[in-house]
Computed example of a mutant assay.
Amino acid sequence: MRPAIYMMASKRNGTIYVGVTSNLPQRAWQHREGVVDGFTKRYGCKLLVWFEVADTMEGAILREKQIKAGSRTKKLALIEGMNPGWHDLYEQIAHG
């Protein structure tokens, strides 16, 4: 699996978390199951609503910083562009 930037949400238009990982299926599962204490567990961000793969981890980290520095409106636009129904994309990435 290539490095990926992703967004987890608590619900449609809810709390959004932006992260980066080298193993998106595993990381999304950890957020869904609440196995790691932190922001996503505290705010119930269990839905994988957006992701983007990168060629390198360095590139993924730069993109994550760019997204985090952007406005909520920009984050919502990314989600709506890929996933207008705010569906949980976990099954799509977990099973190919």
Rank of each mutant, 00 (worst) to 15 (best):
A4N: 12
A4V: 08
I5K: 08
Y6K: 04
Y6I: 00
Y6Q: 06
Y6T: 00
M7R: 12
M7Q: 14
M7C: 13
M7W: 08
M7F: 12
M8I: 01
M8D: 01
S10P: 10
S10M: 10
S10D: 11
K11T: 03
K11I: 00
R12Q: 12
R12H: 06
N13W: 14
T15H: 11
I16M: 13
Y17W: 03
Y17L: 13
Y17E: 07
V18D: 12
V18K: 04
V18I: 14
G19N: 06
S22P: 07
S22M: 12
N23H: 09
N23D: 15
N23C: 09
N23W: 04
L24Y: 12
P25Q: 02
R27H: 04
R27Y: 07
A28C: 10
A28W: 01
A28D: 02
A28L: 02
W29I: 00
Q30G: 02
Q30F: 01
H31A: 00
R32G: 04
G34N: 13
G34P: 11
V35T: 15
D37T: 10
G38V: 08
G38C: 10
F39Y: 14
F39N: 07
T40C: 09
T40D: 04
T40M: 15
K41P: 08
K41M: 11
K41T: 04
R42D: 12
Y43K: 13
Y43E: 11
G44T: 12
C45P: 08
K46F: 04
K46H: 10
L47D: 09
L48T: 01
W50S: 01
F51W: 15
F51Y: 15
F51T: 00
V53L: 14
D55T: 02
D55H: 10
T56I: 05
E58C: 09
E58T: 14
G59P: 06
G59C: 03
A60V: 14
A60N: 08
I61P: 02
L62N: 08
R63D: 12
R63Q: 12
E64P: 03
E64G: 06
E64W: 10
K65I: 03
Q66V: 07
Q66H: 10
I67R: 08
K68E: 14
K68I: 15
A69L: 03
A69K: 13
G70N: 09
G70R: 06
S71H: 13
R72H: 08
T73N: 10
K75L: 05
L76H: 00
L76R: 08
A77H: 01
A77Y: 02
A77V: 01
L78R: 15
L78K: 09
I79A: 03
I79V: 11
E80T: 09
E80P: 03
G81H: 05
G81W: 05
G81F: 05
M82D: 07
M82R: 07
M82H: 05
N83D: 06
N83R: 00
N83L: 09
P84A: 02
P84R: 03
P84D: 09
W86R: 04
D88R: 01
D88N: 15
D88Q: 07
L89T: 00
Y90I: 00
E91Y: 06
E91I: 01
Q92I: 11
I93P: 11
I93R: 01
A94W: 06
A94M: 07
A94Y: 06
A94N: 15
H95M: 04
H95T: 06
G96W: 11
G96P: 00
